[in-house]
Design a protein around this nucleic acid. Structure first.
Length: 549
RNA sequence: GGCCCCAUCGUCUAGUCUGGUCCAGGACACGGCCCUUUCAAGGCUGUAACACGGGUUCGAAUCCCGUUGGGGUCACCA
């Protein structure tokens, strides 16, 4: 028994694709079979080696390792290889051509010389007449064909499709019959010599021994085509199972374009007609803004989002990784969209899924991707992590995405930061994103001007500034600079001068040393920064004009 | 528009095959209360759904038909 995941490598692995991979993987494990990864890169324009590698990394990060497929090694992980290599369709052209020749010889396929323009015109006419477009087979006499071939005229290969109804048997959706005439003579090989998706998929699934195909529901109608090819070639029929599609909360299809949509909306809100400096070129920006079909590259989109101060929706597995989600949480949550083990159980890991996954419990209805629930799962999982493991995971995350922290913080500081952050961080990214003040030079710190800040610092005496002035010598006099010592000093000061209301002192201190109203508990914050920086920042804060800020 | 698929709280879902134990269970979100030096986190608690209309049956969320709504697909993209 064998399953497979067969992505086309454009961009990054999207969460919908990740779920498909997950189910195929879990199903193979459950049945004691094998899981194949195959890269469907038959579209030369859209495929790239970089994207392929990204897909492999994303899958491996989730713990979805393939028994057969491209060879991959990273750290302690190594997987891939196999007898049916190569696993990149672009390297399997001779295989497809040999089979295509056979079909041609048997009269089950034929050459078609229509130009894209001609077909487009026919399609337009069909649309005008409000009827579905179906390709009309034209017979061409051998002499003419020989002449066209001799001229080197571009042509495609099409399948001779019998005019009969086709009944699809699907393990999750049941049976569906496509009436005769619904399917026309579709293309098997493109003019550039590459096979179409339909042909390559069927051939490879047969040759690689795939017995079960779990894929997105958008392929449901294609299944009839694939069955027709199998019949023409005399291939076996795998079991099909079509998975519902994952949607955005608003019901739109979750797609990579959502990033562009978010950015365009933001640009419109701001009334921008030129790109912010160092994001994208002016011409590129104008073209992108004018044409909703143009997508920015991920790097461009990221730069623009940073400049416009918006957060891009997480769509790809890599986005969630960057945002600080735990891979086991994503796996758990993805599985819950379209599958459930029953009995009100919803927290489980990959091993559990591999042990219990079944097609019978796959839902037919599409799910909307609820980031709030994903976040809630992430919070629970992070809180349940042993302290040491949280710190270790944060270290890995920081190394990958926040090198500035790793460079500036001593190991002791890093340890302190993460100890203070565990239990109050919802993602692995929050300790970094929320504590920029730690990697800012003392003299470069800027204070945010906002109502809560003014409220904490100004007002009737003794106000925040007064307390700052009062607590500074107390801190300066400390000989040991650690959390207990600071705690004693600050609470002692509050007891004598602020009616035991620690917050009256803590908040001004927090603002003075971090620039804002949010940071880890005040003793941790001060300990983290070190005595010199704290005193320096308080001194600067005392010179700041709080009234007019 | 043709063809195909789907339909339980706002969302993810349990329950549907094998009708009664369901005036529908869990989780997230939301509201309230508590805790609190900020932001979080945490504790307690509340509101909330069988799309609609017909059947079948002693009895329907569960079976049948229709309506409505949603989705997929109609490429030399996958």
């Amino acid at each position: 028994m064998k399953t497979r995941f067969a992505p086309s490598p454009s961009g990054h692995l999207h969460v919908g694709g990740a779920r498909t991979a997950l189910f195929n993987f879990a199903f193979a494990r459950r049945m004691g079979g094998r899981f194949i990864l195959r890269i469907e890169d038959t579209d030369q324009k859209r495929s790239s080696d970089a994207a392929s590698l990204g897909f492999l990394k994303d899958l491996a990060w989730l713990g979805i390792l393939w028994d057969e497929g491209p060879e991959f090694a990273e750290g302690a992980i190594a997987c891939g290889g196999g007898d049916a290599a190569p696993y990149f369709q672009s390297q399997r052209r001779e295989t497809y051509d040999a089979l295509l020749d056979r079909l041609l010889a048997e009269g089950k396929a034929y050459r078609a010389f229509d130009t894209p323009e001609e077909l487009e015109a026919q399609r337009r006419r069909a649309a005008e007449e409000k009827r579905a477009f179906r390709y009309q087979r034209t017979t061409i006499d051998p002499a003419t064909e020989a002449r066209l071939l001799a001229e080197g005229r571009p042509h495609v290969l099409r399948l001779v499709v019998p005019q009969e109804p086709v009944t699809i048997v699907d393990a999750v959706l049941g049976e569906a019959t496509i009436p005769a005439g619904e399917i026309d003579d579709f293309v098997l090989r493109k003019a550039d010599g590459f096979p179409t998706y339909h042909f390559a998929v069927v051939v490879d699934d047969e040759l690689m021994g795939v017995t079960h195909v779990l894929r997105a529901q958008e392929h449901f109608n294609n299944t009839a085509r694939h069955m027709l090819i199998q019949d023409a070639l005399g291939f076996r029929r795998p079991t099909y199972a079509h998975l519902s599609i994952i949607f955005n909360p608003d019901g739109s299809k979750m797609s990579k374009r959502d990033k562009d949509r978010t950015l365009r909306a933001r640009v419109r809100d701001l009334g921008l007609d030129a790109p912010p400096p160092a994001t994208v070129g002016a011409a590129r920006f104008a073209a992108w803004l004018a044409d909703a079909n143009i997508q920015l590259e991920l790097e461009e989109a990221t730069r623009l989002a940073a400049a416009l101060d918006v957060s891009l929706p997480e769509i790809n597995v890599d986005d969630f990784r960057r945002s600080g989600y735990l891979p086991e949480v994503l796996v758990n949550f993805l599985a819950l969209n379209g599958w459930s083990p029953g009995n009100d159980l919803e927290k489980f890991d990959l091993a559990f899924l591999c042990e219990h996954f079944s097609l019978e419990r796959v839902l037919r209805t599409p799910a909307k991707f609820d980031r709030a629930k994903l976040l809630a799962f992430n919070i629970d999982a992070i809180n349940a992590l042993p302290r040491g493991e949280f710190v270790e995971r944060a270290r890995l995350h920081g190394t990958a995405f926040h090198p500035e922290f790793m460079e500036r913080l001593t190991p002791a500081q890093f340890e302190l930061l993460m100890n203070a952050s565990h239990g109050r961080s919802r993602t692995l990214d929050e300790p970094f994103r929320g504590n920029r003040w730690l990697v800012t030079d003392d003299d470069a710190l800027r204070w945010e001007s906002s109502k809560p800040v003014r409220k904490a610092m100004t007002g009737a005496s003794p106000n925040g500034v007064d307390h700052l002035r009062g607590v500074r010598p107390v801190l300066e006099a400390l000989e040991t600079w650690d959390v207990p010592a600071i705690e004693t000093a600050v609470t002692g000061y509050a007891k004598d001068h602020a009616g035991e209301q620690v917050g009256k002192v803590a908040q001004p201190l927090r603002i003075a040393v971090t620039g804002g109203t949010v940071s880890p508990p005040i003793h941790d914050t001060l300990a983290l920064l070190g005595k010199t920086a704290v005193l320096r920042r308080i001194a600067r804060a005392l010179d700041h004009g709080w009234e007019q800020s």
